[in-house]
Design a protein around this nucleic acid. Sequence first.
DNA 1: CATGAATGAGGATTCATTCAT
DNA 2: GATGAATGAATCCTCATTCAT
Lengths: 191, 191, 191, 191
Amino acid sequence: MNRRKAPESKKIILEAAGEVFAERGYSGTTIREVARRAGISIGGIYIYFQNKEELYLELTRDHMESFRKHTEMLRDKEPLAALKSLIEYHLDYAIKKTGLVSMHIKEYDLEFKKNLKKTFFDSQQRLVTDILKNGAAKGIFKDINCKETAEVILFSLRGAILDYLFGQISDLKKYGESLYRLMLNGIRRAA
Amino acid sequence: MNRRKAPESKKIILEAAGEVFAERGYSGTTIREVARRAGISIGGIYIYFQNKEELYLELTRDHMESFRKHTEMLRDKEPLAALKSLIEYHLDYAIKKTGLVSMHIKEYDLEFKKNLKKTFFDSQQRLVTDILKNGAAKGIFKDINCKETAEVILFSLRGAILDYLFGQISDLKKYGESLYRLMLNGIRRAA
Amino acid sequence: MNRRKAPESKKIILEAAGEVFAERGYSGTTIREVARRAGISIGGIYIYFQNKEELYLELTRDHMESFRKHTEMLRDKEPLAALKSLIEYHLDYAIKKTGLVSMHIKEYDLEFKKNLKKTFFDSQQRLVTDILKNGAAKGIFKDINCKETAEVILFSLRGAILDYLFGQISDLKKYGESLYRLMLNGIRRAA
Amino acid sequence: MNRRKAPESKKIILEAAGEVFAERGYSGTTIREVARRAGISIGGIYIYFQNKEELYLELTRDHMESFRKHTEMLRDKEPLAALKSLIEYHLDYAIKKTGLVSMHIKEYDLEFKKNLKKTFFDSQQRLVTDILKNGAAKGIFKDINCKETAEVILFSLRGAILDYLFGQISDLKKYGESLYRLMLNGIRRAA
DNA sequence: CATGAATGAGGATTCATTCAT
DNA sequence: GATGAATGAATCCTCATTCAT
């Protein structure tokens, strides 16, 4: 019986779960493996988490909250810089936490995390919209539909990340720059 | 004992598997269910396919080949039209074959289909690059890095589809148009 | 793979389950043990029965139905003989199928078998009531409340069986006779 | 660390255990729930009771002893009144302590309580026999086999209780009276 | 070719019991 | 005395795969 303080164990389990879910996806993850990697017994997991679903949910909640906090700080920065930082933050995150991001994409349709996901997506959507509105107000951007454009930017970002996971993009950051440039300037030659 | 011609049985199984994999994903799919839906016995599946993996692989191969054939026809069309058609074809496909596409995204990292995937992605990449080069040669597009831009376009497309699956986008085709416009024109106001 | 015809396997499992449930009660019974005793694999059980509950239910259904059929034949016999036979049948059954009867008593409150149980009890109740009514009509019994008396007879029977199971009664059949006599002297009209 | 006097803690645990065992039966009862309801820690239970079995045993011992004490007082009363009171006490107890009685019936064959049970049953058996002998001596009862009749009375009682638990009897006390009447008319000497 | 009964390893979860604090 | 985190064996159930017919 390896004595530990409860909060510590919970953190350790969450970390181990993060690794395993990342590597194997939700249904591919076994509690046994999470336990093994956390250096705890199988039953020990169930002291802290009602079941596998709850474990996954808590992990997801933590990550989204942390991500949200970091990006939220960009809201009041200079629009072009904010946009660039946002793109970079998204891509950096995907690079540093590849497995985790992979997990969220693979398990996108887990019924039980629908709410969590919606809240997160909405907050990101609002943030980009506000950055664009800010830029439009300052005359930096064209007279665009900010909400619509925010969506295009976000799904392009997620597409880049997806392709990174798919192994099609080797240098994600370089492609972040391409994306940023393309967004800003378009490809059509001015008439 | 329901005698059938071998090729016919194989096709029937493949179709059933397509449905089930689409609805349930790879690991959620049971051979029993595929057999049931194909109106064949469990053992019958194993006459035509070594195992579940092989079944999945053959199905995937078929789909990608069919997709490739359809898009390949755009190569020699007028660049702007070709680009628009390509975007539309991708998005239409995601709408019509949501389950299948979802499955490919969710199971993107199944080790055993890595090769297949690479071949497919590369072919799409080459196609868009060629369309862009064609457009650049004809002076329709700016002086862009075609390969890089092709990648951005493709990952934006896949991002849109991902978001559609995520349930964030209700009208995928409308967003296809937003994307097309944004790609063409960018958001920065001309100096 | 020990080939067998399906109906045979089902019967074998049912018999094994009868033994194990009898010895261990519902929750004390493990599918593993039933499988072991039936000489089949664990998974094999689940080919024939959706789950443990269903297995128990089917077993119970079979027994009650068989019991009901046997006792039902007494309905039209001479009342005194019918009553005696009924008591004997109940007690004989408890002696021959001790474990099974024990199981039904121990697990009397399994929610999922409530309906089955009610149907069975009602049928027995009706049968005894009819025998008594028959006897009353023929002037063999006092002017008793047949329904009420039928109930007392049945719960006395079940009490005897309970005590037999409890190990308090060694010779159940002798006590059946005591019971019969006691009942009779209570209900038989004085000459 | 909530300090308590040992005997007090023991009593509290026993009471909590009584509730839980009554509600859930032996194997349905978890130490965790007993601890929760006693307002003590899981480990705390094990200070006072070696294990679950011991806890159950001690609880049972207490109940039987208390029951025995109450019924023992009837021994020297007037036989008819004593018999009536005994029937009532049994049935009242079943009504008031339904869960506990249910548990004893369901778990009748727990090996480890065999002795306890035998002692209790024997004492009840002796009591009723003595009441009957007393009545026979006083000429109130027919010339019956007291021991045998005592057994019939007790198992009829337990049968009534069983059926009450089975949900077949709604008004247990009314059936107690039916039983009493039936018994009486069987054993009472004609005036 | 075709069948589907049979296999058994493996998954999530529970819970009596222990023991470091 | 008292705590409750930790243990791990045991439970029910699933499902890809095999193979006798």
